[in-house]
């Protein structure tokens, strides 16, 4: 019996390590992660100066509106079963919304299964971690590397700190 790669056999990637929470009950600070090694998530911010401004398909894009609500789409990242990108919206230093901006997962039935189950979980987990004042998460296994990488790119583009 062939075993699956570590990315699946392991436990959940510390994607919530992307989010840093200070212990003060008054203040939550969200820190970005300089990508020291993941070149495709280098967070080279491309500020969309106008609607329709051209942006490279793999580069994060950002937008801002009144009230400190900003959003950015992380780079398109190859993950085990396809290519995805993550869009994150922040209000001040809080993440208010995370969505999957794009997803091409090929024609594999298992890939669709993984995506339909794990991506919503990853989104909710990242949100839950923000409100639980924790420094990390441990739990069930799924493919999260691509998600984390694109989320990181989006956060870097927003320069949330």
């Amino acid at each position: 019996m062939r075993r699956a790669p570590w990315v699946l056999a392991g436990t959940v990637a510390g994607l919530v390590g992307l989010l840093s929470f200070r212990s003060s009950p008054q203040k939550v600070t969200l820190s970005t992660l300089p990508a020291t090694t993941a070149s495709s998530a280098s967070g080279t911010a491309t500020t969309a100066s106008a609607p329709g401004a051209a942006a490279g398909p793999a580069a994060p894009t950002t937008s801002a509106s009144a009230g400190g609500v900003r959003s950015a789409t992380g780079p398109s990242v190859n993950y085990f079963y396809g290519v995805l990108s993550v869009k994150v919206t922040t209000s001040g230093n809080h993440i208010s919304k995370i969505t999957i901006a794009s997803l091409q997962d090929g024609a594999y039935a298992y890939s669709h299964y993984v995506d339909s189950v794990s991506l919503p979980m990853l989104i909710k987990q990242a949100m839950a971690a923000q409100s639980a004042n924790i420094q990390g998460v441990s739990g069930a296994s799924y493919t999260s590397a691509g998600f984390a990488q694109s989320l990181h790119g989006a956060l870097s583009a927003l320069k949330v700190s």
Binding site: W6, G10, A13, G17, S20, T32, L33, S144, Q149
Partner: peptide
């Protein structure tokens, strides 16, 4: 915070 892509996953 730093992250390392290794062992088929991401290590923070």
């Amino acid at each position: 915070h730093r992250r390392v892509e290794v062992m088929g996953t991401i290590v923070t």
